[in-house]
Write a protein that binds this DNA or RNA. Structure first.
Lengths: 241, 241
DNA sequence: CATGCCAACATTGTATACATTATCGGTAGG
DNA sequence: CCTACCGATAATGTATACAATGTTGGCATG
């Protein structure tokens, strides 16, 4: 009995230290765990189909199962993991059809974001987007995938943020997270940098001309084309992902 | 101690077989709670801005806080409730701007759903939609709001389901849940049955002519018009909702 | 050797205990 | 009268205990 109490005290003290660490960051353990697992999935440290148990996660992060379970519920709602009652969960593995569905939606929504953003984009914004475009060209020439990813994200994110529709923005981000790892893998496999740069150039050009319809259409085509590259990649590597 | 444990295990395994039959009908408490709170919000038994505490919920449903908390995480992810750390949660109260954002998205997505569904809609589907349309006309004439809501839901749901895009469908449903109560309240306040019937007729007509662009456009306009009615209603009753 | 059964174990589902934080009313000091 | 502070209370955040369910591997049986 005494030892039990002793053990408990030790555990409690350990946990307190972790709690304090997260308190300093003003973040709950649950929120922290949520973000870590989410990023592990989007950045491919956890692969599609991989099975996760609450025990393993609570051991890995040295916290109890309570915050873990709550974080998992969030991730499930966002379509990143799949639950089966009394059996556990796994990282969502998207079928070709699902990938196409999601990219169809992304094309629609990102295109619409461009349309909305046109009302608020000024010459200054065009200048900034052009500088991003140049960085992308540079990244393509030097085959710097990290730089590409980063600036590509900024390019797309710019229209998203300028759309002025917070709900639209959130949806696009959610869809992006669900496919990010697939996109990343396919990019490492076979990059279509030149094609993408042409697309971006077309979008930019349409923005300069203030041609809303063309800008929206260009973005839609661009996203759909990206999807094609990913579908090709997944089709060829279906066994492992 | 060992024997006790042994006996317990035996009984547990034996008992399991007798329960097997009813297992399929079982639902986890969490899932049950989730659905009940969700419906309480969408059907207005819980009003926007209303504050909920875990203790009250666990008392109401006579369960512990664990499944409650997990259900609340799901509801939060879906935008139905809002959490503030260490302070608790409340039913989301949408601003006029948010309502417009969400309806903008619904218009975009439901319009797109009509576009997608056109590939798969046959004469038989048109016949069914026409019968729904007639029921709506009847409900309008008799001012039967319940019948209107039910058949209107079927009308819109038909295109959604026929779109063949499961992700699109889920998004529309989610957006609908977030605004359902507002829509419902505004309908009780001032109904635009005649206008909506004209819209539906236009959509049906476009379907019959297989005019995809017109059908999509008609649905978009219809949804945006609905939004206008709701915004008017909310603007006038801002104090209470 | 194949197969069905079942105890042991592993995992998820729920309840409870404990820890931390917010809220609110009252009181002392200005 | 106002404000700042304190403490009681109630809420959320986390850890742990207990219960129900799924899985596995060994053993008996044919």
């Amino acid at each position: 009995m005494t030892t039990e109490r002793y053990d408990y005290m030790v555990e409690s003290n350990l946990c307190r230290r972790f709690k304090m660490a997260s308190l300093l960051l003003d973040k709950s353990i649950r929120q922290d765990i949520y973000e870590r697992i989410r990023d592990d999935i989007t950045y491919g440290r956890l692969m599609p189909g991989e099975r996760l148990t609450e025990k393993k996660l609570s051991d890995d992060y040295t916290v109890s199962r309570s915050p873990i379970r709550e974080a998992l519920r969030q991730l499930e709602s966002e379509g990143l993991i799949r639950y089966e009652r009394n059996k556990g969960m796994e990282v969502v593995k998207l079928s070709i059809k699902q990938l196409q569905e999601i990219y169809d939606l992304r094309a629609l929504l990102e295109g619409y974001a461009v349309r909305c953003s046109m009302k608020q984009i000024t010459g200054k914004d065009i200048t900034f987007l052009t500088s991003l475009h140049k960085k992308l060209i540079n990244a393509a020439q030097t085959k710097d995938i990290q730089a590409w990813l980063q600036n590509n994200s900024l390019f797309h994110g710019y229209f998203r943020d300028k759309s002025g529709n917070e709900n639209l923005s959130q949806m696009i981000v959610m869809l992006k997270r669900r496919t990010f790892n697939y996109q990343n893998m396919s990019l490492s496999y076979a990059s279509y940098f030149e094609t993408y740069i042409e697309h971006h150039a077309a979008i930019l050009e349409a923005c300069k001309k203030r041609d809303v319809d063309l800008a929206e259409q260009s973005m839609r085509q661009h996203v759909l084309m990206t999807n094609q590259a990913i579908v090709n990649f997944v089709s060829m590597n279906r066994s492992s992902i």
